[in-house]
Amino acid sequence: MNKLIRLVDGLPVIESADPTLAIVPLAQWQAGEGLLLGPDDDVESLQPLLADVAMIAIDFPSFRDGRGYSQAYLLRRRLGWQGELRAVGDVLRDQLSHMRQCGFDSFAVRADKSVEDAVKGLAGVSVLYGRSAIEPRPLFRRR
């Protein structure tokens, strides 16, 4: 199993995933476990559960499926989720900066890809015109 990239105080750390933590889909989820969300899951209905969720993993069935970005944004900005938010599935270097901007703080890079290499994708471009989960003020309020 591939290692994880985690952001610790905003800086990437490569570490092994905790093998004892169960990450299960919503239908099977029980308090204390990690919650695995598919792109069809409605994040806004999760509010009552969040206090008992260990962490949230959002699945990208394909890196071209962008629903996970909006799910992450909503979890962070609207539901106030402060815990770990992990991108899993088709997670690739060139999308990591967008994922980070949308509030992900851990990344399970696809197993056939080098994690050390993928870390380079986190930086992206330094300019964000609009706003994001981690920078809610658009550039025109920071310019």
Binding site: F63, R64, D65, G66, Y69, S70, Y73, Q95, S97, H98, M99, Q101, C102, G124, V125, V127, L128, Y129, G130, S132
Partner: peptide
């Protein structure tokens, strides 16, 4: 432009 949520 490069709005991270809406690129896919």
């Amino acid at each position: 432009t490069v709005n991270p949520e809406f690129l896919f």
